[in-house]
Amino acid sequence: MSVDTATVAKIAALARIKLSEGEVAAMVPELNGILAWVEQLGEVDVTGVEPMTAVIENKQRLRDDVVNADPLTGGDNRDAVLANAPAAEHGFFGVPKVIE
């Protein structure tokens, strides 16, 4: 499989990265080089092989249903949450107006 300029433009749009026409054109051979190389994986016989789920044997732990048990993962933290916001007003984050 290989990509053309239209595909690269589409991927870039999906990834929300604005690329100029020139950047798209430059990216095409780069991506194709990498894709052609990774496609050697297709040679591997994976019949009956399960995809990796957990690299080291480990069980998913579950958290107790307790509010603010750990301040690092709890709420009541508005100032910290908004502290780095490019635009914050009246306790909200601000973004360009969205028309739904």
Partner: peptide, 30 residues
């Protein structure tokens, strides 16, 4: 970073997921 985001976006996108990502995770198991 852009290059890798684009590759990652591509290999997960509709129609390519199994051929790339699932295959890679199977190879990882091996």
């Amino acid at each position: 970073v852009k290059r890798r985001i684009l590759i990652g976006t591509y290999v997960l996108s509709a129609g390519f997921y199994d051929a790339y990502y699932t295959q890679a995770q199977k190879v990882r198991t091996l």
